[in-house]
């Protein structure tokens, strides 16, 4: 299964993807930092499946994630799991306890 999300070439949204494509999301971090994805929402719906999955819908929609780590400043990766293929790193950032919730705009085309 190929990856669904493509980094946007404009700054207007973060990612684009084909409508209907199934996206599987995960987070990674250093083993000692206990990085956890606490909550995730896409298109106004809280994702409860494990791992979190959603189908891309038409137009621009929010993808919001709430991430925690035991140490401030550890490097966190938000990844898309693409079937048997390699994971795609969607985002890389240093964990910020003053800003645990991050938002992205995904445009379905």
């Amino acid at each position: 299964m190929a990856c669904c999300l493509t980094p946007s070439t404009t700054f207007r949204e973060d990612f684009t993807g084909a409508v209907g494509c199934k996206v599987t999301i995960g987070v990674k971090g250093p083993p000692s930092a206990g990085v956890q994805l606490l909550q995730i929402r896409y298109a106004k719906v809280t994702l409860t499946s494990n791992p979190p999955e959603f189908n891309i819908v038409a137009g621009a929609n929010f993808l919001t994630v709430l991430i925690e780590a035991s140490k401030p400043g550890v490097l966190v990766q938000l990844v898309e799991t693409c079937g048997a293929g390699p994971e795609q790193v969607l985002d890389r950032f240093f964990f910020d306890p003053m800003n645990p919730a991050r938002g992205y705009i995904v445009k379905g085309t």
């Binding site: 000692s32 956890q36 925690e68 140490k71 645990p100």
Partner: peptide, 26 residues
């Protein structure tokens, strides 16, 4: 610390404050 933290922080997954924060961001 990290194992203790991991076990305890899981409680935040179901806390209404977590969902409330994401909704406020959007």
């Amino acid at each position: 610390y990290a194992p203790r933290w991991g076990a305890a922080i899981a409680a935040l997954k179901t806390a209404p404050e977590s969902a409330g924060l994401l909704a406020a961001v959007e």
